[in-house]
């Protein structure tokens, strides 16, 4: 019987390869044409924030979207294992998940009603 940790090891190796390999590959084979936009920090497609010397403030909407994203992200993180063990968890799992979804929905409703999703 193989050691159950081997898949994890493989997984970690792959992750490392992806991270380092991506950067390395772009450095080796990517074209190198620098301009101002190219060297700016990447911030989800939004105007990058000026440096802390000036009024170094981010638009608050950036955070709203980011936090909403994290909420749903975490929701999914819980839903996958639940889906995998759905039959085993049975009714208890269903109720627990519904409770969890309800609690996630309440702040979402709050955000929506209070205009958090209106872009302007």
């Amino acid at each position: 019987m193989t050691n159950p940790f081997i898949p994890i090891l493989v997984m970690a190796a792959l992750a490392l390869l992806m991270a380092i390999g991506g950067v390395a590959a772009s450095a080796v084979i990517g074209p190198k044409r620098y301009n101002k936009v190219k060297v700016d920090a990447y911030e989800c497609g939004i105007q990058p924030s000026p440096h802390a010397m000036g009024m170094g403030r981010f638009p608050i909407k950036y955070y709203l979207v980011a936090m909403t994203f994290i909420i749903f992200d975490i929701e999914v993180v819980f839903m996958y294992p639940w889906a995998v063990a759905f039959t085993e968890l049975a009714m208890f799992g269903l109720i627990a998940m519904l409770g969890f979804l309800f609690l996630i929905t309440v702040p979402f409703i709050y955000e929506w009603r209070r205009g958090g999703l209106d872009w302007d």
Partner: peptide, 10 residues
């Protein structure tokens, strides 16, 4: 607490 959040919303 949950009702309180909904009160804020509605």
């Amino acid at each position: 607490a949950v009702i309180g959040v909904l009160v804020e919303a509605f």
